[in-house]
């Protein structure tokens, strides 16, 4: 059984929190792919029906906001790890 001093344990916890914050942001891949797919489909629709541009843009923004929420959860967790665990 190895005994660590409190300072070493604190440093390990901080390092783990930083690594965890970095790993949490991998979730941004999903949000990015989803948003890009929605934007691409919206461009296709506008090219097909230019007169429906307004309603397509609003629908695209709402869909992107819903697709974004997993990325936002990851961001909030990363910020919690950075600001509330480290300090």
């Amino acid at each position: 059984m190895v005994e660590f001093s409190p300072q070493v344990i604190e440093t390990i916890i901080k390092a783990a929190a930083l690594i965890g914050a970095g790993l949490a942001l991998i979730a941004g891949i999903g949000a990015g792919v989803g948003q890009g797919y929605a934007a691409g489909k919206a461009v296709e629709s506008v090219a097909r029906q230019p007169e429906a541009r307004g309603i397509i843009t609003i629908t695209m923004l709402i869909g992107q906001a819903v697709a974004e929420s997993t990325g936002i959860y990851a961001l909030v967790f990363a910020l919690i790890l950075l600001f509330f665990i480290i300090l």
């Binding site: 974004e68 936002i72 909030v76 910020l79």
Partner: peptide
Amino acid sequence: ISHSFRLFGNIFGGSV
């Protein structure tokens, strides 16, 4: 939860 965290995360992340 998702409704409020989306707004918070966007604005707080932007200000960070």
